[in-house]
């Protein structure tokens, strides 16, 4: 089994090389002439007002939470999807029930207006 992951390990090294090589090359070759004017943050030509780390809407958090719910659900369903065709019918129904419960939750969230962009 670990034999199979040898290639993943090798590709890991290649990917690390591909990720670091171009910036390293650029670091060697590029000119370095810093000037305070150059390093101002870009904000349509005017000097930035306030700090960039402003507070964001809780809405984003809800979408991330919904995503996590579906992610966990997928991890449960992958083994089931792999095997259900060789199992009795109730096993299929169990998985479908699992999904329908989630669909119900999604419809509930929709009905309550949590999916609206405000």
């Amino acid at each position: 089994m670990l034999e199979q992951f040898t290639f993943v390990g090798l590709l890991f090294l290649v990917a690390a090389l591909l990720g670091t090589l171009p910036p390293a090359l650029a670091w060697l070759l590029r000119p370095k002439k810093p000037h305070p004017r150059k390093s101002e943050p870009y904000e349509c030509g005017i000097y930035p007002h306030g700090e960039a780390w402003v507070q964001y809407k809780a809405q984003y958090y809800i979408f991330a939470l919904a995503f996590m719910v579906f992610d966990v659900e997928a991890v449960f369903l992958f083994p089931w999807a792999l095997i259900y065709n060789w199992l009795p019918l109730y096993a299929v129904i169990e998985g479908v029930l699992f999904l329908l419960l989630l669909l119900g939750a999604l419809l509930y969230a929709w009905k309550k207006g949590a999916l609206e962009w405000v």
């Binding site: 070759l29 305070p36 390093s39 943050p41």
Partner: peptide, 12 residues
């Protein structure tokens, strides 16, 4: 061109 471009780092 990208490799030989100056790297500008904004403050902060």
């Amino acid at each position: 061109k990208m490799i030989v471009k100056e790297d500008i780092r904004p403050q902060g």
